[in-house]
Computed example of a mutant assay.
Amino acid sequence: MPHIPPLDPNVAARKGFRESEERLKRFWTAVDVAEGEGGWAVRLDGRGPKTPAGAALALPTEAAARLAADEWAAQGEFLDPATMPATRLASTAIDRVSQAREPVADEIAAFAGSDLLCYLAEDPASLVEQQARQWAPWRAWASVELGVHLEPAEGIIHRPQDPAAVARVRELALRLDDFALAGLAMATPLLGSAILALALQRGAVSGAEAFELSRLDEAFQESRWGIDEEAAERTAARRAEAELLERWFRALQG
């Protein structure tokens, strides 16, 4: 998440999240959601957990609230925050993004200034062809659908983009509510591309497809040199994040 202090992953208690060094046992039996003044709230035995800052864990749609509620329902004897990405995203949106919308949008826009989709390999020919075939349609999509025209370049030397294109990405980010903006802020560095992140947010690409597009070079190297177990685990974890973001954005649409 761009320059947003990370939420402590070891937090939770009966009255909500709180910092703790101890493993926390499950303290609830039933999980549901209920609509209230602040949106759709997660309920644990009829009581609402809170964010680390003490706010109600309330989301804008029933589908988004159920995404978080399912994580609480799936917990075993002990709470495992690592298995609760939607809950963490919601808490980040409520506690952090709501207080730093413009800085978050600035950093998303900065990715457009050096977007992954604009840095093409010079060789080998097979990778050059693959990038041209798979990335060019998304640069065209951004130009037509977003009004963001980015120019590609070969090699790793930075090529400045039109400031108007970068400003347009910032504008699009600020149009989003806090929850969608939190998701976009997570998706952009994950994919290395503001364009792919916006395509994912808008449902134009799936999480799995966006992730594979973001790692063409990495996958090419793996095809030549192989992949070790640790790298495979990191790739699987990042792919799971992209797929979670697809569900997150879809749930925010209701």
Rank of each mutant, 00 (worst) to 15 (best):
A180C: 03
V31N: 01
A140D: 15
Q201L: 08
E71I: 04
W141Y: 12
P124M: 07
A140I: 04
G48Y: 02
S20K: 06
A140H: 08
Q130C: 08
V11F: 01
D80T: 08
Q131Y: 04
D95T: 10
R139P: 13
G48K: 04
T188I: 03
E37I: 08
V128W: 02
L198N: 06
I195R: 04
T51C: 11
W135F: 10
L174N: 06
A197H: 05
W135L: 02
P81G: 11
V144S: 12
A125N: 05
P137V: 06
A12G: 10
T92M: 03
V33D: 01
R159T: 13
D8I: 04
D123T: 11
E171T: 09
F220N: 05
A187P: 12
A30V: 14
E71N: 06
A100K: 08
M84G: 09
I4H: 00
Y119C: 07
P163I: 02
Q161K: 05
W138D: 09
P81D: 07
I156F: 13
A30S: 14
G192V: 10
E37C: 01
G183H: 03
A232Q: 14
S223K: 08
W135C: 01
P103V: 03
I157D: 15
A55I: 00
C118G: 04
T51R: 00
E22I: 02
H158L: 13
M84W: 11
L181R: 05
